[in-house]
Design a protein around this nucleic acid. Structure first.
Lengths: 406, 406
DNA sequence: GCGGATTTGTTCAAATTACGAACAATATCG
DNA sequence: CGATATTGTTCGTAATTTGAACAAATCCGC
């Protein structure tokens, strides 16, 4: 039951009902393909004439296509419909502290081409370099005419409506607008998004049809920082000033280690990759000190993960402690939001069999109900490029989203 | 940008656009009254003919009425429209541990009659007694024909769709269905809701037109427990199993006092009324022990509040410690959800001038951004009966809510 | 092999509603 | 008192949902 905002509403027009139904058809094709007109009519409880009309429009605008006919026990064989994704493309960009990743993908998130380069700290210079690479990529693939837009994902607070990057500490960016410049340089629409939210949007919009994507879920990213993308009632939670989802800065212990945000004992200070490395090196979490030691020793999170997999006790202890802390943090998320599912992304998920029990144990200790304690945790390995897929998702999403009325 | 759930959607029909526009008109009248047809046409950017038609329907179904004409500098004086609430009634019920409160109110939440009685622990007996009181109340006020339904609010987890009370520990109720019996006994539709969520819904649906109710806000209730009602994107957050909003069980200190939920150091263990009383009595939070001492001494939270107001140091210290803890908890809420506003309900708000600085100080320590740290906190005294108003809201809400399509 | 039955997909007329223009009613101004 | 302006109502047109009828394509039983 949603409230109408009388200061910011969209009234219905003659085309509203038709637009809603056309989107429903498109989503049904996308998630239940192959599907016939008669199938659609049955699912939507409308006449086949109506379906023919709506499908004709979607065929005409290139959203779907007709494929094979299917077997029918009797009568005319149905013509099966498919969503067109393979030749509808997006440019996905993932800007991180040290490297920036680029992917040309289709609308289902399937990678066509990948590229990467060292992140240039100055946003203007970064955009210039990025635009050149995008042009080359599109030219090499003869793809310019098939691209709907560019999705760009950053590790920080983003106003997705205006495209401004409000604060991205890891990049040293504050109140930065790269969207206009990139649109001008590429002649493509550009969408900007916060990294954990983008990961969540990838699950929402590019999830495979096999497993139904829930409408209330959380995506937890474990990397240099710990962040969450929250989806409630089928919509991302951004918050009033676009700073929602900072479960990484929920304190597990008020007397715990100093976090980068200035507070003490945040989930991030216990469970980020840096925190795991600190623990592995046998010292309390201290970002500057730990970074110095890491630079000296050259150890990375992937090293620790490999050592844990190989049975090294110190590595196993470090990782399991992190898992327990993640469990504590997830218990808070579960009590606060009661999501249907929690996706967990980050390198640490490569040790899922080892960390899941520790996480689950802590969740069971603190979740309010038995059912809540059983909230499914779904790992997502870094190798599926969740942030890049998220960048694709923010380009594709407007095509599939419900019309915003009332 | 909301996702369409292809397994549970509502398609648009011929009447959809009209229904949406009619709801928009109704909400505009409700929140911007008095308002004329021409005003409505301008705000909605539609023709006056269309408005005349929609308004005629709302007049006919009794949602609005025509009032005075208003001044116009030139031309025909406009006929002002008002929402009808004064003779559209709801029965509101607030079931608490020791007493149950009953209110007959109109659709704006204005109380017409109040009643209360001792809560009968057995739900079947409670419903029987409640139904008798409701019948008497309606008969005394000759109101049977004007009542839209009954709203019943409990302190526990509720499946609002089915009306089942999943778990209400304070009442000792688990998996209880009082709705069907109460509907049968009163011949009225019955809506069941969780108490903090109901308080939030009161803000959303019965809020006065003067201050715009935000679409992202949190309602924190401080009483026997500490709970939250969360609204995101104009919709209440219930969670997958209807257990969302339990920010009261977010831990402030993992080694803190034992909470009723079984964990240690929950916000509730630090900031509920019982926790404040424990502190006042100079002992660590222990529900059973504290309750015993309170029973012996006869001291209540209102006593402590009165003493704090009178300047008694021990009472002031107890209350300010609670305020600080609430601030810590609110900082977590703010970082996690970034709401536009936080309403705070409970007896402790009677000392708002004293507790607000302590809360704000803690929030500033821990909120991630300066702007987030300035999230408005709005006190709501117990004397405005937020739970009863919430019960009214859940009856009235379906009349005003946006049609659920797509 | 053909007529009957069934299913899918298309076409078309009717009903409903958004849309916009014209008109009616009511007011003020010069 | 006529001109002008504003509000509210009426009415015709255009767009779309709705449902029936028809066309196309298939399988089955005789």
């Amino acid at each position: 039951m949603r409230k109408i905002n009388t200061r910011n509403f969209v009234r219905a027009t003659r085309g509203t009902a038709r637009e809603i139904n056309r989107r429903i058809v498109l989503n049904l094709v996308k998630e239940h393909q192959p599907i016939s007109r008669a199938d659609l009519a049955r699912r939507m409880r409308i006449g086949r004439g109506m379906v023919t009309s709506l499908v004709a429009e979607l065929l005409a605008d290139g959203s779907i296509y007709e494929g094979s006919t299917a077997h029918a026990p009797r009568g005319r064989k149905p013509m099966m419909l498919f969503v067109r994704t393979h030749d509808r493309l997006a440019v996905a960009v993932d800007v991180r502290f040290s490297r920036t990743y680029l992917m040309l993908s289709d609308f289902s998130g399937r990678p066509i081409a990948l590229d990467e380069f060292e992140t240039i700290p100055d946003p203007i210079a970064l955009v210039a370099g990025l635009a050149r690479r995008i042009q080359r990529l599109l030219k090499a693939r003869d793809a310019k005419s098939k691209v709907n837009g560019v999705g760009l994902v950053v590790p920080g607070m983003v106003d997705a409506t205006s495209g401004r990057i409000l604060n991205a500490p890891q990049l040293g960016w504050r109140d930065v607008d790269v969207r206009a410049a990139l649109e001008k340089a590429t002649n493509l629409p550009v969408h900007i998004e916060n990294a954990p939210i983008a990961c969540a949007l990838a699950q929402m919009w590019l999830g495979d049809g096999d497993t139904e994507t829930p409408r209330d879920f959380v995506y937890l990213t474990v990397g240099d920082g710990v962040g969450t993308g929250v989806v409630v009632n089928g919509e991302v939670v951004r918050g009033h000033d676009n700073t929602a989802g900072e479960f990484g800065h929920v304190p597990l212990n008020p007397n715990g280690p100093q976090c980068l945000c200035g507070a003490r004992g945040c989930l991030e200070a216990y469970a980020s990759n840096l925190a795991t490395l600190s623990r592995y090196l046998g010292q309390e979490f201290s970002p500057t000190e730990t970074r110095r030691l890491l630079q000296e020793s050259g150890i990375t999170i992937l090293d620790v993960i490999a050592r844990a997999r190989d049975g090294e006790r110190r590595a196993i202890d470090a990782v399991e402690e992190t898992a327990g802390r993640l469990g504590e943090g997830l218990a808070i998320v579960i009590n606060a939001l009661n999501p249907s599912r929690i996706y967990v992304g980050g390198e640490i998920t490569e040790l899922w069999e080892q960390i899941e029990p520790a996480m689950r144990r802590k969740i069971r200790e603190r979740a309010l109900t038995v059912k809540a304690a059983e909230t499914p945790l779904v790992p997502e390995p870094a190798s599926s490029y969740p942030r890049l897929r998220g960048a694709t998702a923010i380009v594709a999403a407007p095509v599939y989203a419900a019309p915003q009325v009332a």
